[in-house]
Design a protein around this nucleic acid. Structure first.
Lengths: 125, 125
DNA sequence: TCAACTGTATTAAGAGTAATAGTACACCTA
DNA sequence: TAGGTGTACTATTACTCTTAATACAGTTGA
């Protein structure tokens, strides 16, 4: 479900944060839905509970989830509209990458075609 | 000239490698042109010569430059066509990012507009 | 010839961070 | 009350980047 890359330069907890954000924003995880517990998820992914907790804490700070001691962690219902900063961040990265591609000789048409194709692929979920 | 980000997750030497590749592929650095010496560039950028050397070694391994003991490091003339793997790598990253943007609700039209704008910006060098 | 420049190699130390391990505490619920 | 939850803390391991300090080998030009 999470396909983490343990060898990535991006830390595991950060990969988790991003994945969970995506699931929340796209409402795969519904508002107020309970997330797997720190220990459960750690066992499933065979990583340390502390790493999960670090991700959950980050998500709570950013307002995507809320945690109740003794109960669990849940999707913040307000999180749906929370992706604006993420969008601008992605756009920024995207612009850098587009620029790089253009410098490498990739044409505008080719890039635009990529978008259409990717969009089609997205629908095929 | 190199605008390095010392606080980036990407190591300095790797940033250097990428920058230099770009300069070489786009022939800002001409074939057989001599690169600044390890020590000179280190002084200019106020970083350690070893860091420069690491970048140069990597570039040599990848075939973008060649180094002659006692003489210097030079742009490999064959490096022009060397960017194919880089292109496919960039395309792959691009696709991931596009997909992410689409999931975040960015429209196809918006993305295509970005490309055109970025292309215009590129011309304004 | 030789000083001063090149690249190259090596070792050591410092620093930062991710991840794990282990433990402990507070809270909730059946 | 037992067993689940989140939370907090310390210590340790591991890895990597970066710097530092040398040292050596080759080239070049005065």
């Amino acid at each position: 479900m999470f396909d983490l890359d343990l060898r990535s330069r991006k830390p595991i907890y950060e990969q988790l944060v991003d994945k969970l954000k995506e699931l929340i924003v796209n409402e795969v995880l519904k508002p107020d839905e309970q997330l797997p517990s720190v220990r459960t998820l750690a066992q499933e992914l065979t990583i340390n509970p502390n790493t999960i907790q670090k991700a959950y804490r980050e998500l709570e700070i950013q307002g995507f989830i809320y945690s109740l001691k003794g109960k669990g962690s849940f999707v913040n219902p307000i999180a749906k509209g929370m992706d604006k900063e993420k969008i601008s961040q992605v756009k920024q990265e995207l612009e850098k990458l587009i620029l790089e591609a253009l410098y490498l000789g990739v044409t505008v048409e080719e890039l635009q075609a990529m978008i259409v194709e990717t969009d089609a692929k997205k629908g095929a979920d």
